[in-house]
């Protein structure tokens, strides 16, 4: 099996994304305006929201891969599902870390059961179960089907969890910065840029991870 970065287009993408990411950080730190009463804390949103977007997108891909695995029975979709689950959990962890970092100075405490963060936390716990199933479930071939079905029900559950958590503690507001579309262009444009760069980064990460999983499977199967 070929080394992932022997492929020229992958190399080009890697260099491009490193460049874009450096530009993104510089842009966020230097160019974006300060929000009056939040100062530096607000800037974490340029990372927090794109991470959440990529995380949920990734879990959506886990569901799609699960459905495709059942319809086609093709091993490839299992690898896509596993790769997306791993990367999704990475970004969801970032959301759960950056959220409290923002909340500590603004709300005075790291965690107040804000509905979006709560939904994310519940989803994170479901995915810990998912990886436990992958690790402790038994025969790898059997576990693939269980993992695919878990990926499907986890994402199907997301809207239900979100609605219930939202009405559970209505006195807690969603964080105001999430309504990014109503922001002035000075904030909106760098934000959308960051969102785009994170998505491109995610695409390369997913491709790389699928490649690694394929190589690993081959190695185990050859022994």
């Amino acid at each position: 099996m070929q080394f992932f970065f022997h492929n020229k287009s992958n190399r080009v993408w890697l260099v491009l994304i490193i460049g874009l990411m450096l530009f993104n950080i510089w842009n966020i730190v230097v160019n974006t305006p300060m929000v009056p009463d939040q100062h530096w804390a607000q800037k974490i949103f340029y990372v927090h929201v794109p991470s959440a977007w990529v995380g949920f997108l990734s879990y959506f891909i886990v569901m799609v891969a699960g459905i495709m695995y059942f319809i086609k029975g093709d091993e490839h979709w299992d690898k896509v599902g596993l790769a997306a689950a791993e990367i999704g959990t990475l970004f969801i962890s970032l959301v759960l870390i950056t959220g409290p970092i923002w909340a500590t100075p603004i709300w005075g405490q790291p965690w107040i059961w804000e509905p979006r963060l709560t939904t994310t936390l519940i989803l994170f716990l479901i995915y810990i179960g998912y990886f436990m199933m992958r690790a402790f479930g038994g025969h790898a071939e059997r576990v693939k089907r269980y993992a695919a079905s878990l990926g499907i029900i986890a994402f199907v559950d997301v809207p239900i969890i979100f609605v219930s958590v939202k009405f559970w503690a209505p006195e807690i507001q969603s964080h105001p910065q999430v309504e990014m579309t109503s922001q002035p262009p000075g904030i909106l444009i760098p934000f959308l840029l960051s969102l785009g760069i994170f998505t491109v980064l995610y695409r390369l990460m997913l491709k790389y991870r699928i490649h690694v999983i394929q190589v690993n499977y081959k190695r185990v199967a050859d022994v």
Partner: peptide, 10 residues
């Protein structure tokens, strides 16, 4: 229980 509790939280 590990899988059930978060899924059933709503």
């Amino acid at each position: 229980p590990i899988l059930l509790f978060p899924l059933v939280s709503p």
